[in-house]
Amino acid sequence: MERVPILKIGDILLVSIQTDMSDQTAVQLQEDLAERIVATGCHGVIIDITALDIVDSFVGRMLSTIASISKVLDAETVVVGMRPAVAITLVELGLSLNGIRTALNVERGMELIAAARADEHDLAFDDQADADTTASS
């Protein structure tokens, strides 16, 4: 069985799917990514599907599952590089990819992850500020 390589770039794990994956390879990728998120402490996952000429319900579900697993492990997932024909087909198939963030390319995906992290820090800071105000009043 082929394995999809996972690259670490700074605080982000980059997965560039280059082959027509068998279902088993897709399931293996889910497990490998979960391991790597925990091992590296990365807060972002980018899955580049530029090379995929189809996304069927199995791969679609894998993408959703990866996004959910990452979330639980405190990492954001962004799927990038979806081809127009793939997007059209996915919608007609009835797959909405709920809960998955998407971006046109890797660069925008990285910006999206950085922005999401910044928002979270702001929120945490606001909460802290609120707590301080409450305590002092």
Binding site: I54, D56, F58, A85, I88, L93
Partner: peptide, 12 residues
């Protein structure tokens, strides 16, 4: 687009 659709259907 039609290639993509029929290959996806075949995969399912």
């Amino acid at each position: 687009v039609d290639q993509t659709k029929v290959v996806t259907a075949a995969s399912e």
